[in-house]
Amino acid sequence: MKNTKQQLVLDQIDKKLVLFQSLQIVVVPLKGWVHTVRTALKMSLRQLGNRMHFSAQNIKQIEEREANGTISINSLREVANALDMQLVYGFVSKHESLEQMIEKRARELATEIVMRTHNTMTLEDQQNSKERIEKAIVQKTNEIKSEMPKYLWD
């Protein structure tokens, strides 16, 4: 059952995630941030390499790994430090809140469960009205949200 502690955790994380909401519209440069910032500063591969104690070829590989999405967070953090910058890492939610995400998933599950029962009853010629089905979905959604069962994200 979702208790006050769980609700508090959700609320606290939502407050942190909302700070990233405006970043949804940020477009990552085609060649990546490392290349973009480095060239904007008119810093050569060799110069950044010297700051990191790497060769120019290593920096080129870092830029390529960032551009194709295979770079590690630690590597990005090291580059940021060498550029006298700070790496900021976080998630931008596709929903207004974690609560909304839970609501959406709970409704999906509730619909599956209710419709399975509805199909069985239809086969037995005992089908329910659309209103009754919707009411059952709402009730099951609320139950799932309240209990937050382990199968919620299966």
Rank of each mutant, 00 (worst) to 15 (best):
L83E: 02
S97P: 03
E124S: 08
Y89P: 00
Q7V: 03
I59Y: 01
L152R: 03
D125S: 10
F91D: 15
R132Y: 11
E66K: 01
T111K: 09
I144F: 10
Q24W: 05
S22F: 12
N142T: 05
T4V: 13
I73W: 05
E78M: 11
W33N: 06
E134R: 12
S97W: 01
T39D: 09
N119G: 05
D11V: 03
E147Y: 07
Q86L: 14
D11C: 09
Q100N: 10
L23H: 08
L17S: 04
I59L: 15
Q47C: 07
H53G: 08
V18G: 03
K130W: 04
Q127W: 04
M1E: 11
K130R: 08
E131M: 08
G49N: 03
E63Y: 03
V37E: 00
E134G: 07
L30C: 02
N50D: 14
L23D: 11
Q24G: 14
E63Q: 06
A136E: 08
L48F: 11
T39H: 08
N3C: 07
K15F: 10
D125M: 10
I133F: 01
Q61S: 11
P149E: 09
H118Y: 06
K150Q: 11
E78C: 06
V27T: 12
Q126C: 09
Q24A: 15
T4S: 14
S146G: 15
A56P: 05
R132H: 15
K16R: 15
T117W: 01
M148L: 15
Q61Y: 12
H53Y: 11
E103M: 06
T39C: 09
Q57D: 11
S93Q: 07
R38T: 01
Q7A: 04
V9E: 13
L152S: 01
L17I: 10
S44V: 14
Q86I: 06
S22V: 15
S75C: 04
T120Y: 14
Q7P: 01
A67V: 03
D125I: 03
R46Y: 08
L19Q: 13
H95Q: 10
T111D: 05
M1Y: 06
V79T: 01
N142Q: 12
K140Y: 06
T4M: 11
V138P: 01
K42Q: 14
T39F: 08
K94E: 07
W153Y: 10
D154S: 15
A40Y: 14
T117D: 07
M121Q: 13
M85P: 00
I25N: 06
R105C: 03
N128P: 02
D11Q: 09
N128Y: 12
V79D: 00
I113S: 10
I144S: 01
L41H: 07
Q86D: 15
V28P: 00
W153G: 02
N68S: 11
S75R: 02
A82W: 00
V37Y: 04
V27N: 12
N74T: 12
V26F: 07
G90A: 10
L123P: 01
R105E: 10
E112S: 13
Q86M: 07
I73C: 04
V37D: 00
V9R: 05
V28C: 04
S72A: 12
D84R: 07
Q86W: 02
N3P: 05
K130M: 09
V88C: 02
E66P: 01
K150G: 08
E108A: 12
L109P: 00
A40N: 14
M85L: 10
I59Q: 02
I102T: 05
